[in-house]
Amino acid sequence: MTATGETRPEAASVRREFALERYRYILQQINAVNENAHRFLALYQTLATALATGAVALFVGYRKWDIPAATARGGVLGLLTLTTVVAAFTCTLIVVGVLSWLDYRNEECDITDELIGPGFRERPRPGNFVRWYETYVLLFILVSVIAMWLLAGLLLLPAMR
Rank of each mutant, 00 (worst) to 15 (best):
A69N: 10
A159D: 11
R131K: 15
V86C: 04
Y136R: 04
Q28C: 07
A42M: 08
A57N: 09
W65N: 08
A57L: 07
A147D: 07
R16T: 01
L58N: 14
T53E: 12
L99F: 11
F129M: 06
V98P: 00
G127H: 01
V130G: 05
G74F: 02
R39I: 12
F120Y: 09
E134S: 11
P124H: 02
Q28L: 10
P68L: 11
R8S: 15
T71F: 01
R24M: 09
H38N: 08
L155H: 01
G127A: 06
R105W: 04
P68W: 09
L77G: 01
A159G: 07
L154S: 07
Y104M: 15
R8N: 06
L93P: 08
F59S: 11
I111R: 11
T84S: 15
G78C: 08
G78T: 12
I146Q: 07
I30W: 03
I116M: 13
E6S: 06
L115G: 00
G117T: 10
I94H: 09
F120S: 04
M160N: 10
N128Q: 12
R121A: 05
G74W: 02
S144H: 11
E114F: 03
A19E: 04
S100W: 00
T49H: 13
A69Q: 09
G74Q: 05
L155D: 10
A72M: 11
I141F: 07
V60R: 15
A88E: 09
V95D: 01
G54Y: 08
V14P: 00
G75Q: 08
G97P: 06
P158D: 03
G54W: 14
C109E: 00
R125C: 12
Y104E: 15
F89H: 01
R24V: 05
Q45Y: 06
E17P: 00
E107C: 05
A48G: 13
D66V: 06
E21C: 10
L102M: 09
P124G: 04
R105E: 04
A19F: 13
R22N: 06
E17K: 14
M148W: 05
W101L: 11
R125T: 08
L77E: 06
Q29P: 03
R121N: 14
R121E: 10
E35T: 09
C91H: 03
R121F: 07
A57H: 03
T112Q: 13
P158A: 02
E108D: 12
Q45G: 07
V33N: 06
Q29K: 10
N36Q: 02
R131H: 11
L82R: 14
L20A: 10
G97Y: 07
A37K: 10
E122R: 15
Y25W: 14
G153Y: 00
G54F: 08
S13T: 04
V130H: 14
D113T: 13
N31R: 08
F129E: 00
L142W: 07
T135L: 02
D66Q: 07
L155T: 11
Q45A: 08
G153F: 00
G5S: 05
I67G: 08
E35W: 04
D113E: 11
Y133R: 12
M1E: 02
